[in-house]
Write a protein that binds this DNA or RNA. Structure first.
Length: 599
RNA sequence: GGUCACGUAGCUCAGUUGGAUAGAGCAACUGCCUUCUAAGCAGUAGGUCACAGGUUCAAAUCCUGUCGUGAUCACCA
């Protein structure tokens, strides 16, 4: 079908040149909407900017006749509506498209012209990036789903992608947990097998913050001062945590031992959560392994006069006339140190093969990445041109942004594990199948993923449990249900798989409107994938997918295939069903929505 | 205050990169299961695209300003 578009463009070019002696950039639309405007729309005002408006229609009519005559195999008729020349495809065009898919043995991805990619080039995509001090929450969930979907889109388009998880396993937040560990040692050992490790450590962090809050209150009364920065400087608890951080950086044995215990507990917890979500990674990096690279680079930067020492011995970088601290006055590292170090590590590992490095990180870090890229530019590290910050907006819970530091254990729903549990429980109430059936988990997972992915990453998600539990309309279960319905057509009609591999020949069957529409949507799918990839926005894909699924259901309800007696007609419709299933399964794989053979 | 997002139907969101009559889902109402899965389909109703200017043959879309919401501006990550 796209070939026809190209043919039309060529015809238009020659006509414009021969008749009017003009060279104009030609822009025609492949109409994928279901309306009276046909299949190809040519904007006459853009095509004929040199012709007076009252004479455009006359010229367009001549044009239409030429195109129809030249492409009589493909074009059935043309109509001039408003300022558009609309062309309508012949029935044969659709049959040919179906035949083409049969020829490719229904391998949908073979329909696409894969982008030209050098074999050794890879795309590195970093997502999830959890901290050790908290279980994964709804913010992570959005991050993970966006990262995973973008990865899958790249893969379908033929790219080599490496999914990378960076774990922030060092820093003041861990030191806080270590600081309080001894007090809760018994509690932890007692509950090790009952409670997930990440929850246990999260609890430690929560306790520390609570103590700190009380201390600040006390200090505030003592010094009769409410300035937060002043009070924090006086805090004994924080002093302890800071000392631990220094000891950690100096590889103090007892501290490292506790750190190892904490790490192991949390990692096991994370693994469990990822398993529930059916998410895997190709590479796991630890900040503790890479931060030193950053530290030495920063010291080099001082020599090169990119960074400067402050009066108190801290090191800073100036961006937009503001100081950004890279190393604390006590010499310990910060977020940016780690970022630089991790990049250096990756450059060493992948050398020149990196085509792109995408950081999936929330939009509150926009400034952080701007500074980061600027620093790289100062070092004349051209890699910064290949780095992208895929930012997304927050997930709000009860109208408040979910911030790590504000997490409260009362709001159980904020963590991914709890969400999954609650959804599973509630889905059982809504759905008319045996509560012990394992399908419930797959339906819940699909529902959660769908609701998060369908919203444009730039928009805030107002988390609403009822919306995820929705079983009507634009939901994950609608997709799963549609798949099961179409599959059941094949079962009930006892499809002979071999027969569907033969081309459709000598048939007078005129495809129905919804069948034509479906095929057009299939053909346009590649364009949507590209768009979704380029904008790094899964919602583009999912919304298109929903549109497609609606047409499929329309097709289902208006074609009672089992009643059709003409074998040849039946065959075409069954072939369309197979194509539908291929498209649905490909798309569901990209989005990570589980496929169910029946619901 | 500076910077960056967002503002479209009662609610939640799309809108093919500036084109034709602004589309879906939920909620409301009306039909359709003795025919491949009714978790569905077909239909009705619901809009001053925050507001005001500007560019253009053409603006929800681009530019400027105003208002509203949120994020960020840390020796936190």
């Amino acid at each position: 079908m796209y070939n026809i578009k190209i043919k039309i463009i060529n015809i238009l070019k020659t006509i414009l040149y021969n008749r009017y002696k003009k060279k104009i950039k030609i822009d025609i639309i492949f109409n994928i909407n279901y309306n009276k405007f046909g299949d190809i729309n040519i904007n006459l005002l853009k095509l004929f900017p040199f012709i007076k408006p009252n004479k455009i229609k006359k010229n367009a009519f001549i044009l239409g006749r030429i195109i129809k005559k030249k492409l009589y195999k493909y074009i059935e008729k043309f109509k001039i509506i408003n300022n558009f020349l609309n062309l309508f495809f012949n029935n044969n065009v659709y049959i040919r498209t179906i035949n083409n898919i049969i020829k490719k043995k229904y391998k949908i991805y073979k329909l696409f012209n894969k982008e030209k990619i050098k074999k050794d080039k890879i795309i590195l995509i970093e997502f999830s990036s959890p901290n050790l001090n908290k279980p994964l929450h709804l913010g992570h969930l959005r991050n993970i789903l966006i990262g995973n979907t973008i990865t899958n889109i790249y893969k379908v388009l033929g790219y080599k992608v490496i999914k990378s998880q960076l774990i922030n396993d060092r820093g003041i937040h861990i030191s806080k947990c270590i600081a309080i560990y001894k007090n809760y040692k018994k509690f932890i050992e007692k509950n090790k097998n009952k409670i997930k490790g990440d929850y246990l450590i999260g609890y430690l962090y929560f306790k520390f913050e609570k103590k700190l809050k009380n201390e600040i209150k006390y200090l505030s009364k003592k010094y009769k001062n409410k300035n937060y920065n002043f009070l924090i400087n006086k805090s004994k608890l924080l002093k302890i945590a800071n000392k631990i951080l220094i000891k950690w950086e100096n590889k103090n044995n007892s501290i490292i031992n506790i750190w190892n215990i904490i790490k192991e507990l949390v990692f096991r917890g994370f693994e469990e959560t990822y398993k529930k979500l059916n998410i895997t990674f190709d590479e796991i990096l630890y900040e503790s392994n890479t931060y030193l690279l950053g530290k030495t680079k920063i010291l080099k930067g001082v020599k090169k006069k990119i960074f400067k020492y402050d009066n108190d011995n801290s090191i800073y970088f100036i961006y937009n006339n503001k100081k950004n601290i890279l190393l604390r006055k006590n010499g310990t590292s910060l977020y940016l140190t780690q970022e630089i170090g991790t990049l250096l590590y990756r450059l060493k590992k992948y050398k020149r093969n990196l085509l792109k490095l995408i950081y999936v990180v929330g939009n509150e870090q926009i400034n952080h990445f701007k500074i980061f890229f600027k620093i790289l530019k100062s070092f004349k590290l051209n890699i910064y041109k290949k780095l992208y910050h895929l930012s997304y907006n927050s997930v709000n819970f009860l109208n408040k942004k979910i911030k790590s530091r504000n997490l409260k254990y009362k709001n159980k729903l904020i963590f991914i594990d709890d969400l999954i549990k609650i959804i599973n429980k509630n889905v059982k109430k809504f759905i008319k199948i045996n509560p012990k059936n394992k399908k419930i988990e797959l339906i819940s997972l699909g529902a959660i993923k769908y609701q998060f992915l369908k919203i444009n990453p730039n928009k805030i998600i107002d988390f609403n449990l009822n919306k995820i539990l929705e079983i009507k309309g634009n939901t994950g279960i609608y997709i799963q249900y549609t798949y099961a319905r179409i599959l059941s057509i094949l079962k009930k009609n006892k499809v002979n798989k071999r027969s569907t591999f033969y081309k459709i020949k000598n048939i007078r069957y005129i495809l129905l409107d919804n069948e034509k529409y479906l095929i057009k949507l299939f053909i346009n799918y590649y364009k949507i994938l590209l768009q979704s990839k380029n904008k790094m926005d899964p919602s583009i894909l999912i919304n298109y997918f929903y549109k497609l699924t609606k047409v499929i259901n329309n097709f289902y309800d208006n074609n009672k295939i089992i009643k059709i007696k003409l074998k040849k007609v039946k065959k075409i419709k069954l072939i369309i069903c197979i194509i539908i299933l291929k498209f649905l399964s490909l798309n569901m794989k990209i989005l990570g929505i589980p496929i169910l053979n029946n619901i």
